[in-house]
Amino acid sequence: MHRHILSVTVENEPGVLSRVAGLFSGRGFNIESLNVAPTLEPDVSHMTITTIGDDAIIEQIVKQLRKLITVIKVVDLTEHKAVQREMALMKVLAEDRNRAEILRIVDIFRCKVVDVGHGDLTLEAIGDFGKIQALINLLTRFGIKEIARTGTVALKRAMQD
């Protein structure tokens, strides 16, 4: 079982998201994260889907996605070198005695403090899945009040050896 990042180019038509999401739920595949956004072409959208499965399942997912009439292209970025990023916003409990340490972590992880409240800090973190996960692990002990994550987006690297 591995985590795969699928880059899916689709026709920007009503219902296309529901077709993709329905395929996953109907066939019992799981979606870990799903990001949809416009591209430079107005009638084309781009989805980044992260999913988990063994090779046979991933092969089925890729083929089933390609079979959808409105899907233009599917690339399994896990088979390539790829840059992956995700952004997370986290509202972390920051009592005075913890504040310094939280700020140190912010520094180490190169996050930003984007909002400050009486007893909390809102942080913005950007990184790959692993980095965000590590950051969450570290901050959990202070108490994360709220979190919003974009899910992974990714692009193939220019150099593929």
Partner: peptide, 14 residues
């Protein structure tokens, strides 16, 4: 009906 038949048609369009 487009929503209902999405998983049992090859394709459908409104």
């Amino acid at each position: 009906i487009v929503g209902i038949t999405r998983p049992c048609t090859k394709h459908n369009t409104l």
